[in-house]
């Protein structure tokens, strides 16, 4: 099929302002949007800049706005978005070039929630025992690949860049609801803050955006509950 990709370009060494550029070519309906971007980069215009690596939706590099929605380019087939496709970088972080945004603030937000196991006791010789039910309790949020699709779709985050954002809360959830972790009080203290969970206005954009089908809004709600009671 004939397709037109309209890409928001930003080439800082060439011109100061961003602009849109059209690319027309042929593709298969079952091609991934990423295949099309690769085609453009490899055959039409090598200056196009984007991040991508695994091409199968697990590395989290290629989140971008596809027809106005945050998605992973490698998990979106052409047949699901049509033949006229507009591609833009994620919103809310500074654009470095074309589709590449500065992710440092995102990873700083992630670090704020102390995303690592805190365990007070000494380690047993073998594994710690955890029941299947306890493991299931936080399964959903372990799937996060830190792609930023959720955070950069959140209107609260757009208007307040200090808001910790859905992705960081998802990461906090993964530990707060892990029976092996002892850092709940500390994480809740961090999140029970003006820039923490209470900023969330339950818009559900994050859940819609998540390429891993994580119930982000639900996770946030559970963290709110925990923050309210000071425990899980």
């Amino acid at each position: 099929m004939d397709v037109t990709f309209t890409i928001r370009r930003y080439q800082p060494e060439v011109r100061d302002d961003p602009y849109y550029e059209d690319f027309e070519f042929e593709a298969e309906p079952t091609d991934r949007v990423l295949d099309c971007l690769n085609h453009i980069k490899w055959q039409i215009d090598g200056t196009l800049a984007m991040r991508r690596s695994c091409q199968t939706g697990i590395c989290g590099s290629d989140a971008m706005r596809i027809n106005g929605q945050n998605r992973l380019a490698c998990k979106t087939l052409l047949q699901d978005v049509g033949s006229e496709v507009t591609i833009e970088p994620l919103m809310g972080y500074a654009v470095i070039k074309d589709l590449v945004v500065d992710m440092d603030p995102f990873f700083d937000q992630f670090r704020r929630v102390k995303p690592f196991m805190m365990n007070e006791g000494s380690d047993p010789e073998r594994e710690r025992v955890q029941s299947q039910e306890e493991r299931e309790r936080f399964d959903d949020t372990t799937k996060c690949i830190l792609c930023a699709a959720c955070t950069t779709s959140c209107p609260v985050f757009w208007s307040d860049e200090d808001y910790v954002g859905p992705a960081a809360i998802v990461q906090a959830h993964r530990f707060i609801f892990d029976s092996r972790d002892d850092g709940t009080a500390e994480r809740l203290r961090i999140l029970d803050d003006a820039e923490g969970v209470w900023k969330c206005r339950t818009v559900f954009n994050c859940t819609k955006a998540c390429p891993r089908d994580i119930e982000v809004t639900k996770a946030i709600a559970e963290v709110k509950q925990a923050a309210m009671w000071g425990r899980v």
Binding site: E127, V129, S131
Partner: peptide, 14 residues
């Protein structure tokens, strides 16, 4: 596991 890796579990939690 001690670092926090969320392994799947057996019925007795191993």
């Amino acid at each position: 596991e001690h670092m926090g890796l969320p392994f799947s579990r057996t019925e007795d939690g191993r």
